[in-house]
Amino acid sequence: MDARQTVFIVEDDFLIMEYLRELSEEIGLGVTGTCDVAEEAVEQIQALHPDYVFMDLRLRGEGEGVDVAMAIQARLPETKIVYITGSNEPASLSRISQDHPHRVLIKPVVEADLRRAVGMAPRGSVAAGPLS
């Protein structure tokens, strides 16, 4: 049985989606799926029950990332939403904050950002152990 943390990626830009998928796999997350359409994302996430959702604000279809996140949180409150957006405008950040996200990352996202968002130690860090 695979005990890795899992993530579902909701992103409307194919290249960014693939970058996030590859980066997630490199840091040891199991990617359960990807989607770029709001309505489909809700259905797939509810079926797959990932630990995390990396959520873009702007999506294809009806609704945006906050709408998807709120629908997910209503049914899967244990799923952590990490917004990954290119918009750091006050109105966008205010809309995101209504959902009480686990984290908000502003694009471009790098490995250290994703590691922090899912509670992983930065690459190369050594966990503190008992002193001898």
Rank of each mutant, 00 (worst) to 15 (best):
residue 2 D to N: 15
residue 4 R to P: 08
residue 5 Q to F: 06
residue 6 T to L: 10
residue 7 V to C: 11
residue 10 V to W: 02
residue 11 E to D: 13
residue 13 D to G: 03
residue 16 I to F: 06
residue 21 R to M: 13
residue 22 E to N: 12
residue 23 L to D: 02
residue 23 L to Y: 01
residue 26 E to Y: 05
residue 27 I to Q: 06
residue 28 G to H: 06
residue 28 G to R: 08
residue 28 G to F: 05
residue 29 L to V: 08
residue 32 T to M: 15
residue 32 T to E: 12
residue 32 T to S: 13
residue 33 G to I: 13
residue 34 T to W: 06
residue 34 T to H: 05
residue 34 T to P: 07
residue 35 C to L: 03
residue 37 V to G: 00
residue 37 V to S: 03
residue 38 A to S: 14
residue 40 E to P: 00
residue 42 V to D: 04
residue 43 E to H: 11
residue 43 E to K: 15
residue 43 E to N: 10
residue 45 I to Y: 09
residue 49 H to W: 12
residue 49 H to K: 15
residue 49 H to A: 14
residue 49 H to Q: 14
residue 50 P to D: 07
residue 50 P to E: 10
residue 51 D to N: 15
residue 52 Y to I: 07
residue 52 Y to K: 06
residue 53 V to M: 09
residue 54 F to L: 14
residue 54 F to K: 04
residue 54 F to W: 04
residue 54 F to M: 08
residue 55 M to S: 04
residue 55 M to A: 03
residue 57 L to N: 05
residue 57 L to K: 03
residue 58 R to F: 07
residue 58 R to E: 10
residue 60 R to V: 04
residue 61 G to I: 03
residue 63 G to C: 07
residue 64 E to K: 03
residue 64 E to S: 06
residue 65 G to E: 11
residue 65 G to A: 06
residue 66 V to I: 14
residue 67 D to W: 02
residue 68 V to F: 09
residue 68 V to P: 12
residue 69 A to L: 09
residue 69 A to D: 08
residue 70 M to S: 10
residue 72 I to T: 13
residue 72 I to R: 12
residue 72 I to E: 10
residue 73 Q to T: 04
residue 73 Q to F: 00
residue 74 A to T: 13
residue 75 R to E: 15
residue 78 E to R: 15
residue 78 E to F: 08
residue 78 E to V: 10
residue 78 E to G: 12
residue 79 T to C: 15
residue 79 T to L: 02
residue 81 I to N: 08
residue 83 Y to K: 00
residue 84 I to V: 15
residue 85 T to I: 01
residue 87 S to R: 05
residue 88 N to R: 02
residue 88 N to K: 01
residue 91 A to S: 11
residue 94 S to P: 00
residue 97 S to E: 12
residue 97 S to R: 08
residue 98 Q to M: 05
residue 103 R to W: 03
residue 104 V to W: 00
residue 106 I to D: 01
residue 110 V to G: 07
residue 111 E to I: 00
residue 111 E to Y: 01
residue 112 A to L: 06
residue 114 L to G: 07
residue 115 R to V: 02
residue 116 R to W: 11
residue 117 A to I: 06
residue 117 A to F: 08
residue 119 G to F: 04
residue 120 M to I: 05
residue 120 M to T: 05
residue 120 M to Y: 15
residue 121 A to V: 02
residue 121 A to Y: 05
residue 122 P to V: 07
residue 127 A to G: 03
residue 128 A to W: 07
residue 129 G to R: 13
residue 130 P to W: 12
residue 131 L to V: 14
residue 131 L to E: 13
residue 132 S to R: 14
